[in-house]
Amino acid sequence: MLVEVKNLSYVYSEKTPFEKQALKDVSFVVDEGQSVGIVGATGSGKSTLVQHLNGLIRLKNGKITVLDIDLSAKKPDLKALRKGIGMLFQYPEYQLFADTVASDVMFGPLNFGFSKTEAEEAARRAVNMVGMDYDSVKDRSPLELSGGQKRRIAIAGVLAYRPKILILDEPTAGLDPAGKREMLSLIASLKGEEISTVITVSHNMDEIAEFSQRVLVMNNGKLLYDTTPSELFYRLDVEALGLSLPHTVRIVRLLKEKNIILPEVLTEKDLVAALLAYAGGRNA
């Protein structure tokens, strides 16, 4: 058990006119090796929830244990927590700050007590892992890179200190299509090889359908469903939650209305295979 959240509640701006209950009695457990998507409309509490997981928001009500660190303790070991749980915020490229790619990526490792040589080695490994050539980018300013490249460098900055859990908040937002594709295949390749557990906050249901094994559905600060993409998109009323259907699922549903029954596919690849099988059957 890597993450355990028990009866978590949180109120923003308590006792002011702006008071807002962001989380209400949220409980769940994430085990090693899972790929978890967190979905919900804007303001449903997704970001507030993940910010609790790495101690950015101080726990007030409930209990959270991450990597055996008890966040309800008086002084939780935040440094160990943040080393273990790497978090990539929305638009992480805006947080690149150093003069060179190398010093930006080395910042995390140095902060977590790596020696200079170790940090450099970690940076080289991480930058290569995100599909860029360390030697050719290390001395460049991060600001000169394209949007997709900047975001990959931001991810490298997190991977460099080898967290056990990776949290991604809207990892593809604002990227161009090529950047999106790169980012998704990068996340898919990291999962399993480098990082065993990935928690992704996303508005993009196509991506959730494509990549997550499990989905937490947030609604008005409550954890409404803890389910699988297949269950969510094929059994539950997704639209009532302010979410859209993935295109693959919409297509299967539209065909069902026309009495053409396809398997309940989630990925584009499986949809094409199902359509080919159906068309092949008709032609035969």
């Binding site: 295109h247 949809l271 094409v272 068309a279």
Partner: peptide
């Protein structure tokens, strides 16, 4: 232009 086709178009193209 390195665009991503809409899902329906990409599936149609594959067919």
């Amino acid at each position: 232009a390195k665009l991503l086709l809409p899902v329906a178009t990409a599936a149609g193209k594959a067919l």
